[in-house]
Computed example of a mutant assay.
Amino acid sequence: MKNVLYLFVLVILISSCSDFQKALKSEDVSVKFIEATKMYEAKKYAKALRLFDQIAPAYKGKPQAERMFYMYAQSLYKTEQYYLAGYQFESFVSSYPKSEKVEESAFLGAKCFSELSPVYTLDQTDTYKAIDKLQNFIDIYPESTNVAEANLLVKELREKLELKAYENAKTYNNISDYKAAMVAFDNFIINFPGTPYKEKALFYKLDSAYNLAINSIPMKMEERLISAKAAYTGFVKYYNNSEYKPKADEMLARIENDLKQFSK
């Protein structure tokens, strides 16, 4: 019985492969469309794509075009070809604005860019694009069932930009470019007022101001010491019980001691 079942499955597989190969070689686009649809419904997206790639140009304007281009975009998405999938979904939305699949396609097109968003250390061009496209989807389809996921994706993408901005500022501090670090931390706090990195940002701004001051030439030292003292005040105003407070107090002691020479 097992052997019979095995042979039956084998015959089906061979027949299926044979049909696919015939469709690939066929000059008849309708044959390719039927086989591509069969592959798509069987979730064999890579095979479906090989056929869709062949027939897509010929199907523009045909009655089956809407269905074909939707399956084409989905196949690209399922095989994680997000650049191409995003393009196809956006093309679908503009070509078939009355389609029942338009809302889903608009969401998946925007989501493709979130999939393309790289780790925070790399260029974030695709992250900004993803946020814009997801936000545009939310604005156009505020009642969509996909809005919750879209909002979550936007939140995650913004957190990535937030982390990158913080790490960029911290890098300036690490390489002792204290002027640039102070500006970067100020901009970071302005751009991300509710950030969970605010405590660290304020401390490292103080650290940058402190190091800039104590390593300054005499004619600039007083002004920079005063600026560092203001950075200390800004830090303890919000985080008087911070784990960084002892270190900040050490800095303040040095700042006040160095300022004495200018009061004489």
Rank of each mutant, 00 (worst) to 15 (best):
Y96G: 09
K22H: 12
L108C: 12
D258Y: 09
S94G: 12
F33W: 08
Y96V: 11
F203A: 02
K220R: 11
E167K: 15
S216W: 01
L153T: 02
L5N: 09
A46I: 08
F89V: 07
A85D: 07
F20D: 05
I226D: 05
Y244M: 15
Q64K: 14
Y166Q: 10
E103S: 06
I226P: 04
E250T: 06
V183W: 04
K25G: 01
D258L: 15
M219L: 06
F33G: 05
E35T: 11
I226L: 13
N211G: 01
Y40K: 04
I140E: 09
K179N: 09
A165W: 00
E156I: 13
V102R: 06
Y72V: 02
D249Y: 05
D249V: 09
Q124F: 02
A181I: 05
M219Y: 02
E100L: 14
Q74K: 07
L153H: 03
K101R: 15
S114C: 10
A58R: 13
S99I: 04
F8A: 15
Q54D: 08
N241Q: 14
M221F: 06
E149W: 07
A56N: 06
P118Y: 00
Y77N: 06
L152S: 15
F69N: 04
L134V: 00
M71C: 04
K237P: 05
N3C: 12
Q81S: 03
K237R: 09
F113G: 06
D207Y: 04
S18G: 13
E80G: 07
S99P: 00
L259Q: 13
P246T: 13
A213T: 01
F92G: 08
V9Y: 05
F107D: 05
L212Q: 13
A184E: 02
E104W: 15
G194W: 01
S75E: 02
Q54K: 11
P196S: 09
I34Y: 01
N168Q: 13
G234L: 06
S15P: 07
K205Y: 00
A253H: 03
T37C: 03
M71F: 00
N257E: 14
I14Q: 08
K38I: 02
K247L: 06
R50N: 14
A213Y: 01
E143C: 08
L24W: 00
A248E: 03
T145W: 03
L212A: 14
